[in-house]
Design a binder for these strands. Structure first.
Lengths: 231, 231
DNA sequence: ATTCCTAAGTGTAAATAGTACACTTAGGAG
DNA sequence: CTCCTAAGTGTACTATTTACACTTAGGAAT
């Protein structure tokens, strides 16, 4: 099968920068796949692939991510489109980059489709990557750092029920600065967008912390009446 | 001439949302062109067009904007990529949208290329637009409102020499709220990123205000040493 | 030249938000 | 029962933001 056009057309891919938190090592992690096909066969790269004729860009990103890594139903947002004429050695390929936030414990990785392997890498210790994928990660990290301070997207990196300590650590890791425990708690609780649950964390070797959950409906109500989320 | 590919490829265009300020009517304006070709021939649309094989997306946006309207050398930044399969009635076309900021007095509009006409429209009184261009403008306006509060991009909408009143009005128009004159001046001057010039405005029928210019070098220095621009 | 009109330019006090900081409590491990 | 770790909590100080009104300058009109 072949496709013929009157004017120049380009291949279009989507690539996903998937972030997760490693609360043990206190670092951000990125989901990478090992390429099973040329070019860059055997090299680590962002999960992604070609956009099919009848799917939207967003759907393509969701599909490729699911196919290659098993990760589904997550926060996914368009980041930037990379279109330098020579960014792919085969021919001109545009890539619409997306970034995603995921609770690292919610998924078991399953490499498949064009990926030989899928694994989490520390943001501070990435392997050499295919194409311009390093640049995409840098861009995504900048976006994440900027957005997390004034939009309640951090919760996407945590399980539905979390402790205030986990939430604080999340901000400390992403913004790369320490926060004062008492001031942080005061600030986040004052917004009244967290539900205090009747549960405490389990399997810890010290006093267990209370669990909270993010109340999105409440947040949206509060935004309407003037709340400006800010950490 | 025809182009044949093994896998599906798509047409790629760039479209530009060009903002300017009307200081007389106190409103934001958008640069539109009247389409000279099908589809949507005769309808108003954003300036833009097909990406050529050897130019980057950014270059394509600059070129199309220059060709269709005469506007060149301006602040231009990628916004979002639109790729719904049916957004163009001819075939699948992706459009990489850019937004731009320009001093409305710095250019004389020259419609040419695929455009029959080019004109400024008030953001609050736009005609019906081709494709999904209304959505692009909405998105661009959101980005502008968000970005102008914490990045010094507003100066791009003013001439190189401006009064503090003009600068304040700019923020008032874009953010759609009034600001206190004394507090605004205090805030912006305290940043020490404006040069106070030995000139005052001309041709005004009242006391002439002092002119200032944005010192970008000074701004970047200050950012390095911890300045966080915010209005 | 005098008056009128418009916008330029300027400071202070009160309220709010942000920061710095340390001890007691709870609970599992040994 | 002791030890260890992190949970949980309040206050005083500092910085920032807000609200607010009058005098000055300069051209236009008479």
């Amino acid at each position: 099968m072949s496709y013929t056009y009157k004017y120049p057309h380009y291949s279009v891919t989507v690539d996903c920068v998937v972030f997760a938190l490693d609360m043990v090592e206190d670092e951000l992690r990125i989901l990478l796949i090992r390429r099973g096909e040329e070019p860059y066969k055997g090299m680590w790269a962002l999960p992604g692939g070609f956009v099919q004729p009848d799917e939207s860009l967003h759907c393509a990103a969701e599909r490729e991510l699911g196919e290659e890594t098993g990760v589904r139903n997550i926060f996914l947002e368009q980041l930037y489109t990379y279109g330098e004429p020579d960014r792919d050695p085969r021919e001109r390929v545009l890539s619409v980059a997306y970034y995603a936030l995921v609770d690292i414990n919610a998924y078991e990785l399953h490499a498949s489709s064009d990926a030989d392997d899928a694994a989490w890498f520390s943001l501070s210790d990435l392997p050499e990557l295919a194409f311009d994928h390093s640049e995409m990660i840098k861009c995504a990290n900048g976006r994440l750092q900027g957005k997390i301070e004034y939009q309640p997207i951090g919760f996407e990196l945590l399980p539905g029920k979390f402790t205030l300590r986990q939430l604080q650590k999340l901000y400390e890791i992403i913004l790369n600065k320490t926060l004062d425990k008492r001031n942080f708690r005061k600030k986040i609780l004052k917004m009244e967008i967290l539900d205090e649950l009747d549960e405490i964390e389990k399997d810890v070797t010290h006093r267990a912390a209370r669990l909270y959950s993010f109340n999105k409906t409440r947040y949206e109500e509060k935004v309407k009446s003037g709340l400006y989320f800010e950490i």
